[in-house]
Amino acid sequence: MSTDASFIAHVAEQAGFGPLLTHRKMFGEYALYLHGKVVGFACDNQLFLKPTPAGAAVLGQPVEGFPYPGAKPHWLIDATLDDPPLLHRLLACTADALPAPKPKAAKTAKQSKATQPR
């Protein structure tokens, strides 16, 4: 089962970040970005958040789950979806605790030629 666009819209509305919270569709599921950082995943119409000590301080006793087969454990965010201020705080502190994304390396001429079809 893949995640519905309406679920993503609901998460975005509840979180209250407006255009700062973005998403990207991946294999029928979604990665959620806040300030350019992947903070979690929406899989099977469930929200999974990257675990951080700051997030644990907000959640207390997080419930672990796996967003997809082979994934590292994430926190399953269920009841928090019905508490917009808590969800907002949780996503904000998670984004703050995560490192900035690494800049993508510029393609060199050699790399560009290697990826062109022959």
Rank of each mutant, 00 (worst) to 15 (best):
C43A: 12
A31L: 00
L87S: 02
D4V: 10
G70W: 08
P19I: 02
L49D: 06
G55Q: 04
P19V: 10
P84A: 02
L21T: 08
Y33C: 00
A54C: 05
E13L: 10
K50F: 11
P85D: 00
K107W: 11
P69Q: 12
Q116L: 14
A54F: 12
K50I: 13
Q14I: 02
E29F: 11
G60C: 09
Q111I: 14
S6A: 11
S112H: 00
F41E: 10
D82M: 04
G55S: 04
A12N: 06
D78F: 15
P103C: 02
Y30F: 12
L91S: 01
P85Q: 01
E29G: 06
P101D: 11
A95L: 12
P101Q: 01
G65P: 13
P67S: 02
L98G: 03
S2Y: 10
P101C: 02
K72P: 01
A12I: 04
A100M: 06
T108Y: 10
Q116K: 15
Q14K: 13
S112K: 06
P67C: 10
P67D: 02
Q111W: 08
F48M: 12
V39A: 05
C93N: 08
R24I: 05
W75A: 11
S112N: 00
P101G: 06
P99Q: 04
K110N: 14
P19R: 00
T80I: 08
F17K: 05
D82N: 04
F17T: 05
G65A: 15
Y30D: 08
A95M: 09
K104T: 07
V39N: 07
R118E: 12
V38K: 04
D96M: 03
A114R: 11
P19T: 12
A5K: 11
R118Y: 11
A42T: 03
Y30N: 08
R118G: 09
L21W: 07
L34C: 00
T3A: 15
A79I: 12
F41C: 15
W75T: 08
D96W: 04
A57I: 08
Q14T: 06
D83T: 05
K107A: 03
K104I: 09
L98S: 06
G60S: 14
L34Q: 06
T108Q: 04
Q14W: 05
A57M: 06
Y33P: 00
H35R: 07
P53I: 13
E29L: 09
P84T: 07
G16V: 05
A106D: 09
T80Q: 07
A57N: 14
G65K: 14
G65Q: 15
G65C: 14
K37V: 04
H35C: 10
P117A: 10
P84V: 07
D82W: 11
G65R: 14
P103G: 00
L90K: 03
K25Y: 13
L98M: 09
V11C: 01
A105T: 02
V11M: 00
E13H: 15
Q61Y: 11
T108I: 13
D82K: 03
L49H: 06
R118F: 15
S6Q: 14
M26A: 15
P85R: 00
G18H: 05
